[in-house]
Structure formats: structure tokens, C-alpha cells
Simulated scan of single mutants.
Amino acid sequence: MLNLKDINWKKPGLFAAGVAFGTAGIKILTSDDAKKLYTNCTAAVLRAKSCVMKTATSVQENAGDILAEAKQINEDRAAEAEAEVVDDFCETEETAEDTAEATEE
């Protein structure tokens, strides 16, 4: 015959405690106070997201401005370099003509 003293109550006790904590946990997680907490946390996350998006947009706009200015600087430098090449070419032609005239005389 089975005596109550012979039963190991540790495992059923742990199971019962787990069920009790689980039930209490579900009650706590679905309570009005918990819902307010979730709502406030979600609102904070949305505010943070908005701040991050504003910053990202600002960075993108600045990057676009920087890129446009850099392209303009390179175009200006290329135009200056081209003008110098044309000026050098013209001076070389004039020198060659002067040399040719001098040799003819």
C-alpha cells in the first residue's frame, strides 16, 4: 500500500508553483497597469524613431549638398585646367610663329 509519507512531493510541488506563477504572470501581463506601461514604452520608442529619422534625413540632405558642392568644385577645376591648356597651346603657337618669322628674316 502507498503511504503519503513515501511520495516525493518535490516535483509535483514545483509543477504547482510553476502553474501558479504562470497564471499570476499572465494576470500581471494582461492587467491595465501593464497595458499602460506597454503603451508608454511604445510611445517612447515612436518618439525615438521620429528623432532618429529627422537626424537621418538631415544627414542625407547635408550629404547631398556636400556631393553637389564637390562636383561643382571638380567642374570648376576642370574648366580652369582646360583654360590653362588652351592658353599654353596658344602661347606655344605664337612662339612657333615668332620663331618661324625670325628664321625667315
Results as ranks from 00 to 15, higher is better:
Asn3Met: 07
Leu4Met: 11
Asp6Leu: 02
Asn8Cys: 06
Trp9Ile: 10
Lys10Val: 15
Lys10Gln: 12
Lys11Glu: 15
Pro12Val: 02
Leu14Val: 02
Phe15Ser: 11
Ala16Lys: 12
Ala16Leu: 13
Gly18Ser: 14
Phe21Asn: 02
Thr23His: 03
Thr23Arg: 03
Ala24Glu: 05
Gly25Tyr: 04
Gly25Met: 07
Gly25His: 04
Lys27Ala: 13
Ile28Gly: 02
Ile28Thr: 10
Leu29Glu: 06
Thr30Ile: 01
Asp32Val: 01
Asp32Ala: 11
Leu37Phe: 14
Leu37Asn: 07
Leu37Lys: 12
Tyr38Glu: 05
Tyr38Ala: 08
Tyr38Arg: 11
Thr39Ser: 09
Asn40Leu: 09
Asn40Ala: 09
Asn40Lys: 14
Cys41Arg: 03
Thr42Ser: 13
Ala43Leu: 09
Ala43Arg: 07
Ala43Thr: 08
Ala43Pro: 00
Ala44Gly: 14
Leu46Met: 06
Arg47Thr: 04
Ser50Thr: 07
Cys51Glu: 11
Val52Gln: 06
Val52Cys: 01
Met53Gly: 00
Thr55Ser: 07
Ala56His: 02
Ala56Cys: 01
Ala56Glu: 12
Ala56Thr: 05
Ala56Asn: 05
Thr57Glu: 13
Glu61His: 08
Asn62Ile: 03
Ala63Lys: 04
Ala63Pro: 01
Gly64Leu: 05
Gly64Asn: 13
Asp65Cys: 08
Ile66Gly: 00
Ile66Ala: 13
Leu67Met: 13
Glu69Gln: 14
Ala70Gly: 02
Lys71Cys: 01
Asn74Phe: 02
Glu75Ala: 14
Glu75Thr: 08
Asp76Tyr: 06
Asp76Gln: 13
Arg77Leu: 13
Ala79Cys: 02
Glu80Ser: 09
Glu80Trp: 05
Glu80Val: 06
Ala81Leu: 14
Ala81Gly: 01
Ala81Tyr: 04
Ala83Glu: 03
Val85Thr: 12
Val86Gln: 06
Asp87Ser: 12
Asp87Cys: 01
Asp88Arg: 02
Phe89Met: 03
Cys90Lys: 13
Cys90Trp: 06
Glu91Phe: 04
Thr92Ala: 15
Thr92Asn: 09
Glu93Arg: 08
Glu94Gly: 01
Ala96Ile: 15
Ala96Trp: 03
Glu97Asn: 06
Asp98Ile: 10
Ala100Val: 09
Glu101Thr: 12
Glu104Trp: 11
Glu104Pro: 00
Glu105Asp: 15
